[in-house]
Computed example of a mutant assay.
Amino acid sequence: MQIDDPDIIAEARAVFDRYEAALMANETATLDAIFWADPRTVRFGIGEILYGIEAIRAFRASVKAYAQRTQRQVRITTFGPDVAATHLEYERIGTGLVGRETKIMARIPGQGWRVVSAHVSLLAADDPGRVMGEVR
Rank of each mutant, 00 (worst) to 15 (best):
R100E: 11
P6G: 02
D17C: 07
G129L: 00
D38C: 04
S117N: 11
A106M: 10
G45E: 11
G110S: 05
A84S: 04
F16D: 06
R75F: 14
A58G: 11
V131N: 14
G80Q: 09
A12S: 08
D4E: 02
V98K: 15
E48D: 05
I8V: 09
R107V: 03
I3A: 11
I56G: 06
A29C: 14
Q73S: 14
A55C: 09
A55H: 02
E20H: 15
M1E: 12
V116R: 04
T102Y: 11
Y90P: 11
A33G: 12
A58F: 05
P128I: 05
I34A: 03
D7V: 05
A65Q: 12
I9W: 06
E11P: 07
T28S: 08
G45S: 03
Y19G: 03
A65I: 13
V135W: 15
G133D: 06
G80E: 07
F16I: 06
M24R: 14
A55R: 02
A22Q: 06
R75T: 02
E48K: 08
A61D: 06
Y19K: 09
A55I: 07
I8A: 01
A22N: 02
G52F: 00
A106W: 07
R43N: 04
V42A: 03
H119N: 10
V63W: 06
A67F: 03
V74C: 12
R100M: 15
L123R: 14
V116S: 07
M1K: 00
M1S: 05
A125I: 04
F35K: 09
R100Y: 03
F44S: 02
D5F: 00
G52H: 05
H87T: 08
D32M: 07
D127E: 14
D127F: 07
Q68R: 07
A118M: 05
E11K: 06
F59R: 01
M24K: 09
F16T: 05
V115A: 03
Y19F: 07
